[in-house]
Amino acid sequence: MRQFVQFSLDEQKPIEIIYLSKKGVISQRKILVKQFVNKQVIAYCFKRHQIRSFTLEQILSARRLFSKIA
């Protein structure tokens, strides 16, 4: 997961994650990483339309998003 988070931070491109909340709820999110410090990911969440904090260990999967070619 770390490489996808770092990619989003370095390239300022969104990634898609599957996240397990502390309450045990799984969600799919599109995020744009703003900071990555001590296993804490600070990112803009497109689902909630605000800056959110994610714990790296609770990111179950991540992938790059690719633009559609017209």
Rank of each mutant, 00 (worst) to 15 (best):
M1A: 14
M1S: 14
R2C: 00
R2L: 03
R2W: 09
F4P: 02
F4K: 08
F4W: 15
V5I: 15
V5G: 03
Q6F: 13
Q6G: 05
Q6W: 12
F7A: 06
S8D: 13
L9D: 08
E11C: 06
K13P: 02
K13S: 08
K13A: 07
K13F: 13
P14M: 05
P14G: 08
I15D: 02
I15F: 08
I15E: 00
E16W: 07
E16I: 06
E16G: 07
I17H: 04
I17K: 03
I17R: 02
I18P: 00
Y19C: 00
Y19I: 04
S21P: 00
S21M: 01
K22P: 00
K22I: 08
K23W: 02
K23L: 03
G24L: 01
V25A: 02
V25T: 11
I26W: 11
I26A: 01
S27T: 15
S27K: 08
S27L: 04
Q28L: 01
Q28R: 11
R29W: 05
R29V: 02
I31C: 01
I31E: 04
I31F: 08
L32C: 09
V33S: 04
V33C: 01
V33W: 01
K34W: 06
F36Y: 13
F36E: 04
N38S: 10
K39P: 00
Q40W: 01
V41I: 09
V41A: 04
V41N: 06
I42Q: 05
I42H: 08
I42A: 02
A43P: 03
F46L: 09
F46D: 13
K47I: 11
R48Y: 14
R48Q: 12
R48T: 13
H49S: 10
H49K: 14
H49E: 14
R52G: 01
S53P: 01
F54Y: 11
E57P: 02
Q58D: 06
Q58E: 08
I59L: 07
S61I: 05
A62W: 09
R63M: 03
R63C: 04
R63P: 00
R63L: 02
R64E: 07
L65I: 15
L65E: 12
L65P: 03
L65M: 13
L65G: 09
L65V: 15
F66I: 09
F66K: 10
S67Y: 15
S67H: 13
K68R: 11
I69F: 07
I69P: 00
I69H: 09
A70P: 11
